[in-house]
């Protein structure tokens, strides 16, 4: 895209933003008529021709107390959904330390007390993502609704985002692939990571890992909607961010750590 086109696009975004704000005002008006109208309107799936909105922020609340040590269901579900690891016949040449992992189970043990626990680890969908800051081309990006993605069309494969991510959430594709899912493109020489199953979220479905967890340890929802289950639980129960000292304002929060 040349700069002029980009500028046009920005203008377009402004137009959309105005339209959205206008809509927001109308909704706010509706909210005065009846409680709950505002929130249900925003949380409903957006039409295909509408852009995602920053009034929504998607996230996870993960309860490690419910997460079993030897259970790998969320990982397997992600592999199957997005076509990596055991979900794909590709990556035959790559060594284990070169294969992609969008989500992984991490065992954490306190050396002093010997207490240990297990938890799923993936892209934390930061509000201030270091990967987005460092990306030279803007391929590493955050959508308005808080989902952090790689635009593989303009990723040059420099791997600076992998250096910058505090969570080791990203993988580099080390070889040619040919068995991609229709909705989950991935390919050699580009970086990838958990995209919060953006193709499902846009259809008003929940991410594959959250759906697969029988213990309901992974709760998905809109952090900005005070009426959503995730927001209500976050308001009433304690939760923490991993490496919260970095102040990245994560979209994924944990309980029991």
């Amino acid at each position: 895209m040349n700069p002029q086109e980009r500028k046009q696009d920005d203008n377009q975004i402004d137009t959309y933003r105005r339209r959205l704000l206008g809509g927001g005002a109308a909704l706010a008006g509706a909210a005065t008529l009846g409680p709950g109208v505002f929130f249900t309107s925003v949380a409903r799936a957006k039409p295909d021709d509408q852009p995602v909105s920053s009034e929504v922020r998607w996230g996870f609340l993960i309860d490690t107390n419910k997460c079993a040590d030897n259970c790998n269901d969320c990982v397997t579900a992600c592999e199957k959904e997005n076509g990596w690891g055991s979900g794909s016949a590709d990556e035959q040449h790559s060594r284990p330390d070169q294969k992609a992992q969008w989500i992984r189970k991490v065992t954490v043990r306190d050396k002093r007390t010997d207490h240990s626990m297990s938890l799923p680890m993936m892209c934390q969908h930061c509000a201030h993502p270091p990967c987005v800051d460092v990306c030279p081309t803007g391929a590493s990006m955050k959508r308005a609704d808080g989902i952090v993605l790689v635009d593989k069309h303009i990723c040059i494969g420099c791997r600076y985002c992998m250096m910058a991510c505090p969570y080791k959430a990203r993988s580099f594709v080390h070889e040619d692939l040919e068995h991609q899912r229709e909705y989950a493109p991935r390919g050699k020489g580009t970086v990838e990571s958990c995209n919060l199953c953006v193709h499902r979220v846009d259809k008003d479905e929940i991410p594959a890992c959250a759906e697969a967890c029988e213990e309901k340890a992974i709760l998905f929802g809109n952090l900005n909607d005070a009426n959503s289950e995730i927001a209500r639980r976050l308001a009433s129960e304690p939760s923490t961010e991993i490496r919260g000292d970095l102040r990245l304002d994560l979209g994924v929060r944990y309980q029991g750590i």
């Binding site: 992992q101 992984r104 189970k105 991490v106 954490v108 050396k111 680890m121 969570y167 991993i242 490496r243």
Partner: peptide
């Protein structure tokens, strides 16, 4: 290794 949980011992399938 990256310090995901400072002071804790961490292990996984992804060389944590």
């Amino acid at each position: 290794p990256l310090q995901l949980f400072p002071g804790m011992e961490v292990s996984s399938s992804f060389n944590d």
